[in-house]
Design a binder for these strands. Structure first.
Length: 759
DNA sequence: GAGTTTGAAACT
DNA sequence: CAGTTTCAAACTC
């Protein structure tokens, strides 16, 4: 399975934060003024050509949205089963074979438009939405708890169910094609995951799974006070062919995650250590003999983890808690399964098992794409369930045997948005959340424990983006990957970004891409305009802040470094180095140039520079390099990098002039080129119509030599006049243009003469 | 491209 | 926290 993770700063939510009372207010204002970009991960489960995962990014400011799809396609259909604290996706195709052997009827999900959209949690406007389109109407009264935008279309046609985790309610619709608006709720307020899928039995009956997780609002009662029903919703779909059902899982209290599955990938924004997105991925080994396939993928956004575990249909999925009662859900019946105390908000998505985590970096970007590695053993996948009695995944995982999820490559892009805004989760009344559950032959369980991940979060909070944590001993092959956020920008610019990780998918171990992240506080767009410079580290192994790649939370890619450890092959060392850096300076991976709220004028170096000899007017100075003024916090000596500095003004003017010259030269070259092309185009008809000779046919050797002499002469004159290089170049180009014009004129004249002479 | 300068990061 | 060393980028020739 491949996972692309976006690392935006995801705020680490303290465990102690109170959960919102049952009625979390979805409209709680975001605390951060971060952009309202939204990321959506769409996963379509089916053997159909529809993309398995679709990653969509919406810029709330511009309103533009980019959808990345067609990544990896699952050859085998999936069924979705909800288990305690887990979302279990049953892979039908593979399960089918096993089912055949076992005599169980294979389950196939209709692939039409089935998508799983995951919106990031945390950053306002950047909700992680896990969606599955559903064709059926929501059950009466079922409501996402305000997670859905008011304008959401209710057309019977397959729609994307928007799962919004955090984000601003005013966020623009992220899905254009789906015609569904993704209301972005503040991470702190509501986290809702809606999954709609069609009946796994090939029937057109849509199956809709809606998981709504409410974010605790501040001041709300702690999780414990919330009814168990609200906390940790478990949706189980056991009945075979059944009318579409909607299951709404609302997790009121997600503030504290207490337990993590042994296999996890943590994605955390480097820039803001405090904000971490954790994605855990566990991949069980494939076992052809078994019916069920469990490929758990835990995605924790901020403090929350979504775990989707795939189990074969009919395979007994353990329902550890009373939630299992939901298994016998009747068609059209909406079921809210009891809460899992202390359970984590998890979505377990079975993915192809691949033993390794691979990194993908997009050059010039600071985003890290991490290929999640599957767990070697199924047992490892189990036990991921939430704390307390909620058995969660453990039962399911144990029951199901490891399988490679998809025969074909599976790609999964997981954008991670900063969870800065997510601090508390207000539990949302279960009743308020829409619940639609369509029965499927296979059990479907959705478990969305809202409990925080205490053991993990603290560790990931300060991890820089791109960090991949090696799996803990005995936990299987699951590791944690910390990825820088600000993934949206990259997605907007390059929709590709995916890693294929299924067994069938080529490992592509060397593939690395980097996402664009703000550089030195510059806007992502600005930073993205130029490619990241490759480092040349020789002694630091690229594991110290000397290395720009490492400092920016990026993996080295196309660098000139020696003995580089800043890659997934040395994840252990890298993680250790990151930890060391963070121990030394918790702010080590944060941008040095803080973004001014009101604009560039407010940007300044977080620590200030210490220049002594450069006058802060050379790129040695971090302030000057960032194109900002030195501030009072700088300790520089002889600073000339202040507003009224004449030296600075001179430099700026020179720099501007140089830039203008470059632009002029570029424009001149472009113009000349276009003129030449235009001339050739205009002269071309002469041949066809009049049968005359093209002007360039007059460019004989002699003409060429003469032209070159003219150009050289012009250059000599410019040199003698001591003209600046740009001016000299301009003169030469002009002379070249004159030469061309003379050639063309001669050609025209020759043609006219020839015509008059009837030649 | 080699060598020097520079200042942040790392170390003591 | 201050001084020193290390390091890699920026700069010069």
């Amino acid at each position: 399975m491949d996972v692309i993770m976006d690392t935006e700063a995801i705020e680490d939510v303290p465990h102690s934060q109170p959960d919102g009372g049952g009625g979390g207010d979805a409209s709680v204002p975001m605390e951060t003024d971060t952009p309202t970009d939204s990321l959506q991960l769409s996963i379509s489960i089916s053997g159909t050509p529809s993309p398995l995962l679709t990653l969509k990014t919406t810029d709330s400011v511009t309103g533009t949205s980019i959808t990345t799809s067609g990544l990896q396609k699952l050859t085998a259909p999936f069924t979705i089963s909800a288990a305690n604290h887990q979302i279990i996706l049953n892979k039908v195709a593979q399960a089918t074979e096993a089912a055949k052997a076992a005599g169980a009827a294979p389950q196939v999900l209709k692939q039409d438009g089935q998508k799983l959209l995951v919106t990031t949690i945390g950053k306002p406007g950047q909700p992680i939405v896990l969606q599955l389109p559903h064709a059926g109407a929501k059950p009466g009264g079922a409501k996402p708890g305000g997670a859905q935008a008011p304008g959401e279309p209710k057309s019977p046609t397959p729609q994307f169910k928007v799962v919004t985790i955090g984000g601003r309610a005013e966020q623009k619709p992220a899905v254009s094609g789906a015609a569904n608006q993704l209301p972005t709720l503040q991470a702190q307020q509501l986290k809702t995951v809606q999954i709609a899928k069609k009946n796994p039995t090939f029937s057109a009956a849509p199956i809709k799974l809606i998981i709504a997780k409410t974010v605790n609002s501040k001041g709300l009662s702690p999780q414990t006070s919330v009814p168990s029903v609200i906390t940790g919703r478990v949706l189980t779909q056991t009945s075979p062919v059944v009318p579409p059902r909607t299951i709404t899982l609302s997790e009121p209290h997600s503030t504290s995650l207490q337990s993590l599955p042994g296999k996890k990938i943590a994605i955390s924004p480097l820039k803001s250590p405090s904000k971490v997105t954790v994605v855990s991925v566990a991949s069980p080994t494939s076992n052809a003999s078994q019916k069920s396939v469990t490929l758990p993928v835990n995605v924790a956004l901020g403090q929350q983890i979504l775990t989707v575990q795939q189990s074969a249909s009919g395979s007994p999925v353990k329902v550890q808690t009373s939630q299992t009662s939901a298994q016998a859900v009747k068609p059209g019946q909406s079921v809210a399964v009891g809460s899992v105390g202390g359970s984590q908000f998890k979505a377990i998505i079975p993915l192809a098992a691949q033993p390794n985590v691979q990194q993908i970096q997009v050059p010039g970007s600071r985003f890290h794409y991490v290929r999640l590695v599957t767990a070697s053993t199924a047992s490892s996948t189990g036990g991921t369930g939430g704390t307390g009695g909620a058995a969660g995944t453990s039962g399911a995982s144990t029951s199901s045997k490891p399988m490679v999820v998809s025969a074909g490559p599976v790609r999964m892009s997981v954008p991670i948005v900063p969870a800065q805004t997510v601090k508390q989760v207000a539990p949302k009344p279960l009743g308020s959340a829409p619940q639609v559950v369509s029965a499927a032959q296979t059990q479907q369980r959705l478990i969305m424990p809202a409990t925080p991940l205490p053991q993990i979060q603290p560790n990931f909070a300060n991890l820089p983006p791109g960090t991949v944590l090696a799996p803990a001993p005995g936990t299987g092959n699951v590791g944690y990957a910390v990825v820088p956020a600000q993934y949206v920008t990259q997605l907007q610019q390059s929709p590709f970004v995916t890693l294929a990780s299924s067994s069938g998918f080529p490992a592509a171990p060397g593939i690395q891409t980097q996402a664009r992240l703000p550089v030195n506080g510059l806007p992502a767009a600005e930073a993205s305009s130029r490619p990241r410079k490759p480092c040349n580290c020789t002694k630091s192994q690229c594991l110290k802040l000397y290395c720009d790649c490492f400092a920016n939370g990026e993996f080295c890619n196309n660098c000139n470094c020696n003995n580089c450890f800043n890659n997934l092959e040395h994840e252990t060392e890298r993680m250790k180095a990151i930890k060391t850096c963070l121990d030394r300076n918790p702010e080590a991976f944060k941008p040095k140039i803080g973004k001014g709220k009101e604009g560039e004028s407010d940007r300044r170096h977080s620590k200030g520079c210490n220049c002594k000899r450069s006058g802060c007017l050379k790129n040695y100075c971090e302030c000057y390099e960032a194109k900002i003024m030195c501030s009072s916090i700088c300790k520089c000596v002889g600073c000339k990098n202040f507003e009224e500095s004449p030296e600075r003004k001179t430099l700026m003017h020179l720099a501007d002039a140089a830039e203008v010259r470059v632009q002029q030269q570029t424009a001149a070259k472009t113009k000349l080129s276009s003129q030449i092309s235009d001339l050739l185009m205009r002269t071309a008809p002469v041949v066809s119509s009049g049968g005359g000779r093209l002007p360039y046919t007059f460019v004989t050797k002699e003409v060429l030599e003469a032209t070159c002499e003219c150009l050289l002469e012009q250059a000599k004159r410019a040199e003698q006049a001591q003209l600046p290089a740009p001016e000299a170049e301009r003169l030469v180009l002009e002379e070249f243009g004159h030469c061309l014009m003379r050639i063309i004129s001669s050609a025209a004249k020759a043609k006219a003469d020839c015509s008059s002479m009837s030649c």
